[in-house]
Amino acid sequence: MTKWQRYAAYALAIYALSVVVLRFSSGGQGWGTALLLALVTTPLALWMGRLRSRLDERAAEWGRRRFRPWPEERRR
Rank of each mutant, 00 (worst) to 15 (best):
M1Y: 00
T2E: 14
T2H: 12
T2R: 13
T2F: 06
K3H: 14
Q5S: 15
Q5K: 15
R6M: 14
R6V: 15
Y7N: 07
A9E: 12
Y10A: 14
Y10K: 13
A11V: 09
A13Y: 08
A13C: 10
A13K: 10
Y15H: 04
A16S: 07
L17N: 03
L17V: 05
L17I: 05
S18N: 15
V19K: 02
V19E: 03
V19D: 02
V20I: 05
F24Y: 12
F24K: 01
S25L: 02
S25I: 01
S26I: 04
S26N: 05
G27Y: 07
G28Q: 06
G28D: 04
Q29M: 13
Q29E: 06
Q29V: 06
Q29I: 04
G30R: 00
G30L: 02
G30S: 08
G30D: 05
T33K: 09
T33N: 04
L37R: 02
A38Y: 07
L39F: 07
L39W: 03
V40A: 15
V40T: 13
T41N: 07
T42Y: 11
T42G: 11
P43N: 00
A45C: 12
A45S: 14
A45W: 08
A45G: 02
L46E: 04
M48S: 11
R50K: 12
L51F: 06
R52T: 12
S53H: 06
R54E: 12
L55C: 08
L55D: 09
E57N: 10
R58T: 08
R58D: 14
A59S: 09
A59M: 03
A60R: 14
A60F: 07
E61H: 10
W62V: 06
G63N: 06
R64V: 04
R64T: 02
R64I: 06
R65P: 01
R66L: 12
F67R: 15
F67Q: 13
F67I: 10
R68A: 15
R68C: 06
R68P: 01
R68T: 12
R68E: 14
P69E: 05
W70H: 07
P71N: 04
P71V: 05
P71E: 04
E73G: 00
R74P: 11
